[in-house]
């Protein structure tokens, strides 16, 4: 351990806690991965924590040859279809709140979004279900997209507001001097300057919507409208004995999010710490 000024002795309590936690996090993940490469027979024959004696892609083949690619596509459509509009409208609202938040209208809007944070979304699913039925959107991907956007807005506005506030006032001033419209200032000044926050909010929302379970459970019915988490749940019923196949689908479901995490990790972690740590 490198010595830092002011810290003479290593911190054993924190060190041990961090190692114990590392084990708790890593063991289940390790188990998911190794098990997904076992055959069904191998799963029952080998020690659960030992790597497969003969690694096999049987489980993955079974999953990919099922309707999994369709569910994957559904999840992709819902996630992109919800995250992009959600971030765009939240950014516009956050910009307005920061730039002219003293007007009564925007003050109330801000209050509404902040209050929305304290309301558990799941408590509103029954009327959401009714609205979606009445809009003739039941059992459609658009019916999943609309409420997902709405649920993403409050937290996105909060985080984006915190970041747009940090843009120096003089920059807005000089844009105004150059004759830029507010619309132009929003996209050409505020948006690029708060990119880390935008990335954070985008990844966070993508994660939440990609992993969402209750809306698809309630708002869809046909197997061909399933998104991945719902499909996982029904896989589990279908292949309850084929644990490697179930875990292979867990791996495949998480892979896109893992890629997103690897790409945007730095910004996501610093964005979240700054967004909440105030």
């Amino acid at each position: 351990m490198a010595r830092t000024p002011g810290r003479e002795r290593p911190n054993w309590v924190a060190g041990v806690t961090s190692l114990v936690w590392l084990a708790i996090v890593v063991i289940p993940i390790y188990w998911i991965v190794i098990t997904s490469f076992k055959t069904q027979n191998n799963y029952y024959a080998t020690n659960p924590l030992a790597p497969p004696t003969e690694p096999s892609l049987d489980a993955y083949r079974l999953v990919v040859e099922s309707d999994f690619p369709l569910y994957f596509l559904n999840s992709l459509i819902v996630t992109l279809g919800a995250v992009i509009p959600a971030v765009a409208v939240s950014f516009m609202a956050a910009y307005a709140i920061v730039r002219s938040g003293r007007t009564r209208f925007l003050r109330s809007a801000n209050w509404l979004f902040l209050t929305g944070l304290a309301v558990p979304h799941q408590a509103t699913v029954i009327p959401v279900y009714l609205i979606i039925i009445r809009l003739n959107l039941y059992d459609s991907l658009l019916g999943l997209i609309l409420p997902s956007i709405a649920f993403a807005i409050p937290l996105s506005v909060l985080i984006l507001t915190n970041f747009i506030r940090d843009v120096p006032k003089e920059l807005f001033e000089s844009m105004r001097m150059d004759g830029a419209t507010e619309w132009g200032t929003l996209w050409r000044l505020a948006f690029p300057l708060t990119r880390p926050a935008v990335v954070t909010v985008t990844i966070y929302n993508a994660l939440t919507i990609w992993n969402g379970f209750m809306l698809p459970l309630i708002l869809t019915q046909s197997p061909d409208k399933r998104t991945l988490p719902l499909a996982l749940w029904s896989f589990q019923g279908q292949y309850s004995i084929n644990v490697p196949a179930v875990l292979a689908s867990v791996v495949l479901t998480t892979l896109p999010i893992l890629v997103l995490y690897v790409v945007g990790r730095r910004q996501l972690l610093s964005g979240l710490t700054a967004g909440f740590g105030k």
Binding site: I97, L112, P127, F151
Partner: peptide, 22 residues
């Protein structure tokens, strides 16, 4: 600038606030 917040308000209103009253 209030109009910039309108799309977010409509979406959050329609699928967040209305259901709460609903």
């Amino acid at each position: 600038l209030g109009w910039l917040a309108v799309p977010a308000l409509l979406l959050f209103g329609g699928f967040g606030v209305v259901p709460l009253v609903g």
